[in-house]
C-alpha cells in the first residue's frame, strides 16, 4: 500500500513534468523531459555511480561525525550550566551564518578532497542533532525527576537512567532530519571546490548545457537522500519506539 502510493505519486510527478515539457515546447537544454533524462541516466550510469559513491562516503562520514559531536555537545549542555552559558549562544549564532559562505573557507582550510565536504555535512547537521537531543534532555517529565530525588539518585545516574532514555525519541527525530540535510551539506561543499561527487557532476553538466545529465545527477541525489532518510528512520525506530 505504502509502495503503491509512492509509485502513484511518482507517476503523477512524472506526468506533470512531461506535461510541462510537451505544452511549453521548451528546448531540451532548458528543460529536458523525463524520458530523455532516464535515457541519459542509463547511458551515464557508471559515471553517475562513481560520483554517487564519492558523495555517499562524504555524507555517511559527515552524518556519523555530526551525530557523535551533536550528542556529546547536547550531553555537555544538559550537564553543565557553565556549558549552557558559554556554548549555547555560539551555537545559535553559527546557525545565523549562511553555511554557503563558509564553504570556500573550509575548502581553503581542508583542501579539495573528502574532508572539506565532510566538514560541511557536519556543520549542517550538527545543530539539528544537538538542539533536538538537548531539548529532549531538558524536557524530562518532572515526575520522574521527583521520584529519582526521593530515591537519592546522583545527577549522573539520573542522566543515564532517566534523562537520556527519555530524550532518545527527540534524538531520533533530529537524526532523521539530519539524514536529509547531510547530503545537501556535502553537495554544497562539492560545488565550491571538488573534482568528483554528484555536486561536481551537476555543476559540470550545467556548465556544458547538458541539462539532462544535470537532472539525472540531481534526481540520483534526491533518491539517495530519501534512501538515507529511510535507513535512518528504520535504524532509529527502535530507540524512538521503545522509549515511547
Amino acid at each position: 500500500m505504502k509502495l503503491l502510493s509512492a509509485l502513484a505519486a511518482s507517476v503523477f510527478a512524472l506526468a506533470i513534468w512531461q506535461g510541462i515539457v510537451s505544452l511549453t515546447g521548451l528546448p531540451k537544454f532548458i528543460l529536458p523531459g523525463p524520458a530523455l533524462v532516464a535515457e541519459t541516466w542509463w547511458q551515464n550510469r557508471w559515471v553517475i555511480a562513481e560520483h554517487t559513491w564519492v558523495t555517499a562516503v562524504e555524507v555517511v562520514i559527515g552524518f556519523a561525525c555530526g551525530t557523535v559531536l551533536g550528542v556529546v555537545t547536547a550531553l555537555q549542555l544538559a550537564n553543565s550550566r557553565v556549558a549552557r552559558v558559554l556554548i549555547q549562544p555560539m551555537l545559535v549564532f553559527t546557525q545565523a551564518l549562511p553555511v554557503f559562505a563558509l564553504a570556500p573557507l573550509l575548502t581553503l582550510w581542508l583542501g579539495y578532497g573528502l574532508w572539506s565536504k565532510v566538514a560541511m555535512a557536519v556543520l549542517i547537521i550538527y545543530f539539528p542533532i544537538t538542539s533536538s537531543f538537548f531539548d529532549g534532555l531538558m524536557r524530562t517529565p518532572s515526575g520522574y525527576l521527583d521520584l529519582a530525588r526521593t530515591m537519592q539518585a546522583s545527577p549522573r545516574a539520573v542522566l543515564w537512567h532517566i534523562r537520556v532514555p527519555a530524550a532518545l525519541p527527540s534524538l531520533a527525530s533530529g537524526m532523521r532530519l539530519a539524514a536529509v540535510y547531510a547530503p545537501i551539506g556535502a553537495v554544497i561543499g562539492e560545488w565550491v571546490g571538488s573534482s568528483q561527487g554528484l555536486g561536481y557532476l551537476m555543476l559540470l553538466a550545467n556548465g556544458r548545457a547538458k541539462t539532462d545529465l544535470m537532472f539525472a545527477a540531481m534526481l540520483t541525489l534526491g533518491v539517495f537522500s530519501i534512501l538515507l532518510h529511510l535507513i535512518v528512520r528504520r535504524a532509529t525506530a527502535r530507540i524512538a519506539g521503545e522509549t515511547r
Binding site: 517529565p141 515526575g143 520522574y144 521527583d146 521520584l147 526521593t150 532517566i162 532514555p165 527519555a166 532518545l168 521503545e242 522509549t243 515511547r244
Partner: peptide, 12 residues
Amino acid sequence: AYMAQDDLLLPW
C-alpha cells in the same frame, strides 16, 4: 518513599 497519582513508570 514516594508514590504519586501518575504511576511514573519508565515506559522504556
